[in-house]
Structures are given as structure tokens and as C-alpha cells.
Nucleic acid binder design. Structure first.
Lengths: 184, 184
DNA sequence: CGCAGGTTTGAACCATGGTTCGAAAGTCGA
DNA sequence: TCGACTTTCGAACCATGGTTCAAACCTGCG
């Protein structure tokens, strides 16, 4: 039930944006009465929080998995990028994740920001290692990592499921472009 | 006067986000009474609209200027990237531009989206020409352009003026990284 | 059947915040 | 100084939308 509601909320958040969607919209999307949402969740903010938390967990998991695969930095980064795009465009709740952090009240935002920082650090570690190994050109890993994540997060803004490009095509293009920018 | 108000609005939008800031906040920032804002602007939406419109004009202008400089695609793209970062981090109103398009009512949004599309097309033209000239690796110019713009627009989310990095450092790092990803 | 617990409802409550408005204050040429 | 006009004020208005609540509804067990 909680899952059903979260899916519905994520769908509407993505479609109309967090600020523009009302509890009544979410209720309608989940075939529920407005009041009933509060039996499962405490507030609208909490709903957004769990959407973000869930997709961050997913992204962190792929980082963890990729870390064990003993490949080079370039391959590992490409894998993370592909997974990030997939999470952003296939999974519906991914889009609301990084996009609307500012909307959360301080208490909840803290926790999301902390988790997001852990994800960013994981990606940065891959970049830094590539630089150290000389497979990547010398650069500031922090800035480059943010450029990469920016390009990825921004996909939620322009991608339309009914467009010509399937998510995999976007993932491929982004992986090759964003990795090549690092290669020495 | 209108300029003063717009600056103030842009500052607060950037600090707290569009949805979170009230007319009373903007009025306070501009040392004005809440009601007085409506003597110069019709609504809160209109305020956001003019912020976005102004910074888009600025970005389009640099595209135009760069177009006349008869340099190669790589140099032209680097110039546009640098200008975009500057507009994003130096000029306060730039941040609100691409970041909160969804917040606008349909009528105003249409016009902003149209202008933003023109900007995107201008950047894409540079990329496409580079590909045609073989100075850039073969790729889908549309997707790569969106990756570039995503990385740039995202800067508004994480950059803090009191941080260690001056805007120019960010501009340099982004220009080299994002252009190198295209070079064959 | 009947009762207890969990679940669902939808109408009503109420704070927030964009907006309006009538009046007061400044400006300036005559 | 006067009067017309522009500008400013801030208290009140009011729609929106998140939230609450008491009653109804189910479900399963004794």
C-alpha cells in the first residue's frame, strides 16, 4: 500500500512538479481519498522524502556493486552513468529525487543531502582514482563530478517517455561523451 | 526601480527558491512595502518571468557575439560555456532562469520555453558544425548539447558564493572538460 | 451475530501567502 | 501655496491547498 502510494506520488511529482501537485491529485492518482493518505504518511513533505530516499538508495547500491567489479575507472564510471540515467528515466520516482531537494523542510532535507553527498563522494572517488592512475586527464575531481551529475540530473527536465529516444540511447550517448571528456 | 525590484527578487529566488519565497520577502529585500510591488509588476509569476527573460536575452546575445568571431567550433563552444557559467554565478538573476521554468503559468512559460529553445538551438548549431568539420567526434548533437546545458544549469544548485572556488575557476574546469568530451 | 481492530471516507478546518484597495505621502510645475 | 499626478503604504481580503476528524466501512475471530 505504501509502495502504491509512493509510486503514484512520484508519477504526479514528475508530471507536474512538487509545488504544483496537491494531495488531492496524489489521492486521485492512487485511487484513494485525500484523507486516507495521512493514514500511511505524515505529510506531503514526507511523501517527497521517501521518493528521494528510495532512489538514492538505489543509486548508492549500484555504486557499491560497481565498486566490486574490478574494472578500470573508465568502465566503472560508464556503468554508474548508465545506471543513473536508467534510474532517472525508467524508474519514475528517480526524477523527483535530486530535483526538488530544496522543497523539503530542514529536518528531512538534512538527511537527504547527507545521503546525496555520500553518492557524490562515491562517484568522485572513481574519478579521482582514474586521475591518480593517469587513465584520466588531470583535473579537479570535485568539479568534474558535479558536471557529470548535473548533466545526468538534468535529464529529468527534458526527457519525455513518448519521445524518439529510448532511455538506453540517452544512457549510451551520455556515457561515451561524459567519459571521453575525462580520458587523457 | 523595476530593475531594483528584479534584482531583489532574483536574489531571494536564488536563496530560497521560487515556491518558498513570498511577496513579503521580496518586498523586504527591496526595502519596499508588499503592496507596492504591484505598482510595478502584475504578479509574482511575472516577476519570475522577467528574471528568466532577461538572463536568456543575455545568453542569446553572447551566442550571437561568439558567432561572429570566426573561430573554430571548439573555441566558440568554450566561450559560450564560460559565458553561461558567468551568467549563472555572477549575475544573480541567471540562476532562477532555467531552474524554475515549470513554476510559470502556461502563457508565460510558453514564451520562456520558446526563447530557451532558441538558445539551445544556437548551442546545438555549434556542436553540429564541429561534428561536420570533423573537429568533434561523431555523436548526436541534440543529446550532447543537453548534457552540456544540464551540467551548466546545475551549477546554480550547488555553487555557493562564499565557497573556495571563484566562478572563473568553475568556468575554466567546465569548459575544458565539456569541450574535451567532444574532441575526436 | 456481535464486537474489536484496522481501514477508508469526504466534508470541514485553518494557516499560508498572493493580491487588492482606499488612503496617505511625496513630487513638481504654475 | 495650490492642485494634479505619481508613488507608497499596510491592513484586510480571499482562494488555495495541506491537514484533521468523527463517522462509516470492512474483516475476521469468538
Amino acid at each position: 500500500m505504501r509502495q502504491t502510494i509512493l509510486r503514484a506520488a512520484a508519477r504526479v511529482f514528475r508530471r507536474r512538479g512538487f509545488a504544483a501537485t496537491g494531495m488531492r491529485d496524489i489521492a486521485a492518482e492512487a485511487d484513494l481519498s485525500p484523507g486516507n493518505l495521512y493514514y500511511y504518511f505524515g505529510s506531503k513533505d514526507e511523501l517527497l522524502f521517501f521518493c528521494q530516499d528510495h532512489s538514492l538508495d538505489r543509486m548508492l547500491a549500484t555504486c557499491h556493486a560497481v565498486g566490486r567489479a574490478g574494472a578500470g575507472a573508465a568502465e566503472r564510471l560508464a556503468l554508474v552513468i548508465r545506471a543513473h540515467v536508467a534510474c532517472m528515466l525508467d524508474e519514475l520516482d528517480g526524477a523527483a529525487a535530486h530535483t526538488e531537494v530544496e522543497a523539503l523542510p530542514p529536518r528531512l532535507r538534512e538527511r537527504i543531502v547527507a545521503k546525496r553527498d555520500r553518492y557524490e563522494a562515491a562517484v568522485r572517488r572513481i574519478v579521482a582514482e582514474g586521475v591518480r592512475m593517469r587513465t584520466f586527464a588531470p583535473c579537479d575531481p570535485t568539479l568534474v563530478t558535479r558536471a557529470v551529475l548535473g548533466a545526468l540530473n538534468w535529464t529529468a527536465r527534458w526527457y519525455r517517455p513518448d519521445g524518439a529516444q529510448p532511455p538506453a540511447a540517452v544512457a549510451d550517448a551520455f556515457a561515451t561523451y561524459l567519459v571521453r571528456g575525462l580520458c587523457a
